[in-house]
């Protein structure tokens, strides 16, 4: 399972602190994500999982500390088109008049750049991304007509269309049934192993994430654990947290 090339650090957080108001929601978080990692970030509700993800993506700016993507400070990082982002399900207004293909082709827009119209290559990459996640047959359907699982795949396809190095996923399986959830994690495994994509997954599903990911981070304001999932599960952290009732699973 581990063929992680630790020579390339993709994302590095150094003593990152963040607060919306006066109270810190993220405190002194440091971690490094390497090429090929499949990182699961778990933690209680309100523990700062999604905030951490937004800090990694530059949607929020840290009050203190630094976030570096591909060795560059976020302010200097320019190559945003190689960053895939799958937002929380239901985050998108679902009665928008867009087809699956229109949604997925948006993944190419950042890459194409201003003043350039999408071309044949974009079309081809869009179709390829749809194929990768097995929803090519739904390309002309309205996004609003898809099932929860298909919709989630469409958002993955959008991220894939950008030919990303790393994909960030925010609670991707909230509200989908167990079978869909299983298929979804199979897809993520395929992306990680076959396409060698680096994945960062924020979720509250400790059990599944601990079994799927190659690195596990537990965040509850501070990063209380970061390392191998196996260690976490058998280690004292897990039992302590279960004892505190801080883990949802």
């Amino acid at each position: 399972m581990k063929n992680v090339d630790h020579s390339q650090t993709i994302l590095q957080l150094d003593k990152v602190c963040f607060s919306y108001t006066s109270e810190e929601v993220i405190k002194d978080v440091s971690l490094a994500i390497h090429k090929g990692d499949y990182v699961g970030i778990i933690g209680p509700n309100g523990g700062g999982k999604s905030t951490l993800l937004k800090l990694m993506l530059g949607i929020l700016k840290p009050n203190n500390g630094s976030v570096r993507l591909f060795g560059k400070d976020l302010d200097d990082f320019k190559d945003w088109s190689i960053i895939g982002y799958v937002p929380q399900k239901n985050y998108i207004e679902m009665n928008l008049p867009i087809t699956v293909k229109e949604l997925v082709s948006m993944g190419r827009y950042g890459k194409r750049g201003l003043f350039r119209f999408p071309n044949k290559e974009d079309e081809q990459k869009t179709l390829q991304a749809l194929k990768h996640v097995d929803i090519l047959e739904y390309k002309d359907k309205q996004v609003s007509d898809l099932s929860g699982g298909q919709r989630q795949r469409a958002f993955i396809a959008r991220a894939l269309a950008a030919e990303p190095e790393i994909i960030f996923l925010d609670e991707p399986t909230v509200g989908v049934d167990i079978k869909t959830q299983k298929q979804f994690y199979e897809l993520l495994r395929k992306l990680n192993q076959e396409l060698e994509l680096t994945l960062v997954l924020v979720s509250h599903e400790l059990d599944v994430v601990a079994h799927e990911s190659s690195e596990l981070g537990y965040i509850n304001r501070t990063l209380e654990y970061y390392g191998e999932p196996e260690e976490f599960l058998k280690g004292k952290y897990f039992h302590e947290l279960i004892g505190k009732g801080g883990v949802h699973h």
Binding site: I59, S81, P87, M106, G110, A162
Partner: peptide
């Protein structure tokens, strides 16, 4: 394409480098 992306998903558009 930028107007469309920002309309559908402003956050993802921002992440993808759309101004």
């Amino acid at each position: 394409k930028e107007l469309l992306y920002v309309t559908v998903d402003e956050e993802a558009a921002k992440v993808n480098g759309i101004p």
